[in-house]
Design a protein around this nucleic acid. Structure first.
Lengths: 212, 212
DNA sequence: CCGTTGCACGTACGGTGTACGTACCTGGGA
DNA sequence: TCCCAGGTACGTACACCGTACGTGCAACGG
């Protein structure tokens, strides 16, 4: 396969998913492609550009199956889940996506869809932007926890601290709720948050249109 | 000053805040302290431990002025803002705090306070944990946007894309709301999100206790 | 036919984390 | 008092990193 920007980015993605973000180096990418290190620089200005490309590529793989006829709450649900699904397909790359601010138009399509949905629901421009930012903050924060819990597919990774060696007098609630804190059904947590947010902004909407 | 783990971590914090996370290296830290590189390893096992120490130290500087007598909504507000204030004092380090999962008890005190507040408000254990995770996700996501917008205190950093070179036919909403998207009053956005979340969980609570 | 252009490549430089061996200085027993 | 054991600071060395630079080859337009 001919060397190209996209083939380099693709190799970087596979390398990240296989061995983690720390393993990414120009030399490793070149070896992956069976090519000299400096040949990469004929297609890519520097390493940062490769990482930008990774974020852009992953982001553009979100599958939006938007149905403009559905109720806006269902559309919001769909878009949130579509955004979240990339974290399952590319868990290691997700950290890159959320921790780099991108300079391309790749991230604009989700934004456009979301704003259109919110506007069609009846929110004015300012509220639509605010609410979009609220959802993005929640989704990004959730993804960060999910991928942080699998830093290197570590076997069992004792969540933070062993239960028995924390002072029950100093942390009564934490030790009482330790089992709940240790385990986390990410799917259910995400669902809970999204549903609560949707209800909240629905209330925000009806409150603005004139309290019923 | 005698070399020690805390002095090394403190030097790392100041270095990060002054020159950014990329500038952090064991050699730079040693130079900062006027000391040989390998002397650091008498007090710290490796670089990752230094970064863990930075996250732990920054997190432990949160000032909680919790008033157990206040209404639980006010206590939640206070704790959320206390958490957020570290992003203002240590913007560059914040990225480290949110992108590393920590293995110490430093992060447990905020968790304990939050759980106690939620329990006193009437939530059961499972809901308290869920709601705490919801708030953390929102706060972390918000901080990530705030610090991401000032990656290196860049002068004006054209937010994502210049307004004029995006296709208004492809992105009608984005281009129409461009001014709103470009500027962001982080304080106001955070306030909006927190208030909406508090109202939402208050509704969640009254709905569980028996709909009024 | 020749010149230009573009791509793959090797070498080299400064920087990184850290394993290892060495020297000092200090404290406690003989 | 002597002596030595341990902790601390240090220098050297190695493998790896990103990438600036110069070289050779193959394709193509004149």
């Amino acid at each position: 396969m001919a060397l190209s920007r996209t083939s380099i980015v693709e190799a970087a993605i596979q390398l990240i998913e296989r061995e983690g973000a720390d393993a990414v180096s120009m030399r490793r990418i070149a070896a992956e492609l069976g090519v000299g290190v400096m040949s990469l620089y004929n297609h890519v200005p520097n390493k940062a550009a490769v990482l930008d490309g990774v974020a852009e590529a992953v982001l553009s793989k979100i599958e939006f199956t938007d149905d403009p006829g559905a109720h806006w709450t269902d559309r919001v649900r769909m878009q949130a889940h579509a955004f979240r699904q990339i974290a399952h397909h590319y868990p290691r790359c997700t950290m890159l996506v959320v921790s780099r601010q991108l300079h391309s138009t790749a991230g604009l399509l989700p934004v456009e869809r979301a704003l259109a949905t919110l506007r069609s629901a009846g929110f004015d421009g300012a509220d639509a932007v605010r609410i979009l930012r609220l959802f993005i903050a929640f989704i990004v924060g959730s993804l960060l926890r999910e991928v942080g819990v699998t830093p290197t597919f570590a076997p069992v990774q004792h969540h933070t601290v062993r239960a028995e060696d924390l002072d029950q007098a100093l942390f009564p609630e934490v030790s009482a709720l330790a089992p709940l804190l240790r385990s986390c059904d990410h799917e259910a947590e995400f669902e809970f948050g999204i549903e609560l947010l949707i209800r909240a902004i629905a209330g925000h909407l009806s409150r603005k249109e004139g309290t019923p």
